[in-house]
Simulated scan of single mutants.
Amino acid sequence: MSFLSASLARIKPSATIAVSQKARELKAAGRDIIALSSGQPDFDTPDNIKRAAIAAIGRGETKYTAVAGITELREAIVDKFKRENQLDYTVAQTIVSNGGKQVIANALMATVNPGDEVIVPAPYWVSYPELVSLCGGTTVFAQASRASNYKLTASELEAAITPRTKWLMFNSPCNPSGAAYTREELQALAEVLLRHPHVWILSDDIYEHLTYGDFKFTTPAQLAPQLYERTLTMNGVSKAYAMTGWRIGYAGGPLALIKAMEKIQGQTTSGASSVSQWAAVEALTGPQDYIAMSREVFQERRDLVVSMLNAAPGLDCPTPEGAFYVFPSCVELLGKRTEDGAVLNTDEDFVSALLQAEGVALVHGSAFGQAGNFRLSYAAATEQLRDACARVQRFCATLR
Results as ranks from 00 to 15, higher is better:
349 D>I: 11
274 S>M: 02
236 G>A: 13
155 S>G: 00
168 L>S: 03
121 P>Q: 06
273 S>Q: 04
289 D>E: 05
52 A>G: 03
98 N>P: 11
116 D>T: 06
203 S>M: 00
115 G>H: 14
13 P>E: 12
365 G>A: 10
367 A>Q: 11
258 I>D: 04
315 L>I: 04
219 T>M: 07
96 V>H: 06
47 D>H: 05
257 L>C: 13
274 S>F: 02
262 E>M: 07
88 D>A: 14
44 D>Y: 00
277 Q>V: 08
277 Q>E: 15
175 N>Q: 03
300 E>N: 11
121 P>I: 09
196 H>A: 10
243 M>V: 04
142 A>Y: 03
202 L>K: 08
297 V>D: 12
282 E>N: 02
331 V>M: 12
119 I>P: 10
114 P>L: 03
157 L>I: 12
167 W>C: 08
279 A>C: 05
217 F>K: 12
285 T>K: 09
380 A>V: 11
39 G>R: 05
79 D>R: 10
99 G>E: 11
290 Y>K: 06
248 I>Y: 00
165 T>A: 10
302 R>H: 09
240 A>Q: 14
155 S>K: 05
226 Q>C: 04
168 L>H: 03
17 I>C: 11
300 E>M: 03
240 A>R: 10
89 Y>K: 09
158 E>R: 13
130 E>Y: 01
299 Q>W: 11
294 S>V: 09
60 G>A: 15
280 A>H: 06
58 G>T: 02
188 A>K: 08
118 V>E: 10
302 R>V: 07
230 R>T: 09
394 R>S: 05
287 P>T: 04
39 G>H: 08
129 P>T: 09
147 A>E: 15
115 G>K: 14
198 H>S: 09
229 E>C: 06
353 A>D: 03
